[in-house]
Design a protein around this nucleic acid. Structure first.
Lengths: 340, 340
DNA sequence: ATCATGAATGTTAGGGCTCACAGGAGCACC
DNA sequence: GGTGCTCCTGTGAGCCCTAACATTCATGAT
């Protein structure tokens, strides 16, 4: 096991090999137009021959052109976050950027400064996928010290802050949550219950507003964590009340828990209980019965976040949003309540 | 918008502020024992006061102690990969390491060297989550140039290569695939069909071996990609044959597609068709009917990968594997075939 | 011939950190 | 008083790259 450093080929080696200065090599690898074609070819050949690959650390340290983005998030296993990440990756890759993901510790206490202290020194522009308190705080802290930070969030939590609004890319899940709620009310349900995920207050808000708009008082929402089990338990409690005929869930995972709870309680979906999810996970369309849910273009949002960041970096005008608007996808788990 | 670099506080600033040399500061932040207690306190105070945070780029560049791991993978949205990643994060965080994830482009052509060229220069020890050709190749290439690389894979693909075996951490999904196949045979099914995922040959192998061990010829496996839709279509075709009564799936997502296909074909699960998944995704237990599947301790595996890497870095003996063995979890989607 | 112009290249100075040393202080011992 | 030692601290070089400036050389206008 060779423990001593292999001494990688560096820019000076290449320069010597090609008979030019190291700076010329630097120019070649950075696609500077200030290199004559024959020289460029020579350097390219040397690079090829020696198997040279630029050291991204040194590059970033020297303050070179940012060919790298760091994505900050807390949980890569959540569907929304991971899809957003994929979208960022797509766009970044197309632009020749390297993506690195840094997963933050959830922070429950402390202020923004505290949150910042936990972020490793980045040395590259960053995109924060803000879907909880930790990332929201990180995002604010980061904006204070770094010129380049875009945010992708599922909701409008940060949209009000003028300081950050410029740097924000978001999906309006409040409106679509209201839309989903109305869908259930229109089917004839007396009211709609809500199972909340730990974050994404906008969804809950949309639900409340839709109920209030029709003169109904919103029931107390059932707080769940990210686990399906928590939804199963919450729903089991809820279903003891025969008046509960429609449940809106903070995401599709929770919906799965609700459907199972309904099954175990002897209630059939959608005849005895309507369930609406959120996110349109891959499995939603293939469930039996197929899940009525909200389609959210996370990938598009991720791409948008990168494009926005890029435009800021290059000092260009921000691109127009190109992602799909959230939409309610009615499938098989929502239906009129059974007439009693 | 301050576009010019904010000039972060650096080690020299701290040194000046504390009235010591920059090297002493370096020693303090690296917990060297060669610093007198009062000096250490002074430096600590200065660090606190100035809000200094070491620049990880410069640190890594200078060849300092590796407090960072890079995880290489191709797809963070797959359950297995993302859970493994979480496991690595857990362990790394506990050890004070920063984790950064680098997502590779899938490479379909070219050899190991080619794969290596696509990996950005890391500058830190790496863990490759090898679950497909791209990552497997990357892993081989990386071992050639970097001293520190551990691999977490779902199968024994690489286990034979003595060169890498030392650096390998793996789950024996071949054996458990055989176990799952026997489970179905024991229930009385004449044979078991298999829907394959793009990688993880070991699973397919285990299935084949289990069938052959009982003197049966393995049917032609149906090749699927990672999408549920592909499983839906493959299963729809398969189910035209009434003799098909048991299907083993390369992962739980495929199983969902199969169950939906069965539903649409008028077959009830498990009475008319038994389905067994792989991975024990969170939703598996909550499906209706609940999915019989294989539980794989990906998180434990991830932790193990990090621990192995750590031991190599420190020149210690490799730790004993501490993750749970794969196990078949029998739930509601497997049953004896209906007597005809 | 004379100068400005610009393209192509080279030179130098960092960026923030760690390594390998070189020292100085303090102590014990002969 | 000298020698050797340990403990702590400082100095210098170097990691690999890019920014900014300096230089060279051809080109065309005057």
């Amino acid at each position: 096991m060779s423990t001593d450093r292999p001494r990688r080929v560096n820019i000076v080696d290449v320069a010597r090999h090609a008979g030019v200065s190291h700076q010329t090599v630097s120019r070649v690898i950075n696609d500077s137009p200030l290199v004559a074609a024959p020289t460029r070819a020579k350097v390219r050949a040397a690079i090829e021959e020696l198997g040279f690959r630029p050291n991204r650390l040194a590059r970033a340290l020297a303050g070179g052109a940012a060919r790298e983005v760091t994505v900050l998030t807390t949980d890569t296993s959540l569907y929304g976050a991971s899809e957003t990440l994929s979208g960022i990756e797509d766009a970044a890759r197309a632009a020749g950027f390297t993506v690195s993901v840094s997963v933050m510790n959830p922070v429950r206490t402390g202020g923004d400064a505290d949150a910042l202290a936990r972020i490793p020194h980045l040395g590259s522009p960053a995109i924060v996928i803000a879907h909880d308190a930790t990332t929201t705080r990180a995002m604010r802290a980061l904006r204070a010290t770094q010129p380049a930070t875009t945010v992708a969030t599922g909701g409008g939590d940060l949209a009000d802050e003028t300081e950050t609004a410029d740097w924000l890319v978001a999906l309006d899940d409040r409106a679509v949550a209201a839309r989903a709620t109305r869908h259930l009310l229109d089917l004839g349900h007396r009211t709609v219950h809500y199972l909340s995920i730990p974050s994404k207050a906008p969804r809950q808000l949309g639900w409340e507003q839709a109920l209030q708009a029709t003169g109904r008082a919103a029931p107390v929402p059932a707080a769940c964590d990210w686990s399906i089990a928590s939804a199963y338990h919450a729903a089991s409690d809820l279903l003891e009340d025969p008046e509960v005929t429609a449940i809106l869930c903070g995401n599709d995972d929770l919906a799965v828990g609700v459907i199972r709870a309904a099954h175990d309680a002897g209630r059939r979906v959608p005849y005895d209980l309507s369930v609406v999810g959120f996110d349109d996970c891959p499995f939603a369309a293939f469930q039996v019965p197929a899940l009525t849910t909200v389609g959210l273009d996370f990938r598009g949002l991720g791409r948008g976040a990168f494009d926005l960041l890029r435009s800021k970096l290059d000092g260009e005008a921000p691109p127009r949003p190109s992602w799909r608007q959230p939409e309610l996808i009615v499938r098989e788990t929502s239906a009129p309540p059974r007439s009693r």
